[in-house]
Amino acid sequence: MTTALPDAEVALATLAERMRASVAWDARFVGIYSGGAWIADRLATLLPGEHPVGYLDVAFHRDDYGSAGLKGAGRATKLPFDVDGAAIVLVDDVLFTGRSVRAAINELFDFGRPASIELAVLVDRGGRELPIEATYVGARVAVARDLTVALSRGDDGRLALAFERSGEAG
């Protein structure tokens, strides 16, 4: 059932095109570390308007903390704008179970009450375990559950998608 992964740069261009018409002119782009942070940076340059970029570390709100312990050591949430009343686009690389997004929304609310939150993801691989859907999707793929889809960034800044066979994903 596993399909081939798309080219990450093509998926990013598609995602930006799908956002162009409807994203608020002053929407804040908030990337989830680390892949989502890279994509948020890129989207802010690709899309017209004023898009301050922030970054979220979701470790404090993960629901697998009891079994997986504290993750993401050393990265702190950075939101260089007021969350209260802001239009926010949450950005992540791969949407899978929806648990990271749930944690990210909780983390955002620790900083204030946004006017709205949309979700933009580079890849939607299906397999949701929570009632969460993306507003904007770069590419959809079908992937076996035991495979992890990982985004990497080269020295030249180019993004790439690859399979990793390991435990968890979000």
Binding site: D57, F60, G72, A73, G74, R75, A76, D110, F111, G112
Partner: peptide, 10 residues
């Protein structure tokens, strides 16, 4: 490190 910036949270 992430706990140091705790003061910035509502």
């Amino acid at each position: 490190t992430p706990f140091v910036s705790f003061g910035e949270r509502d």
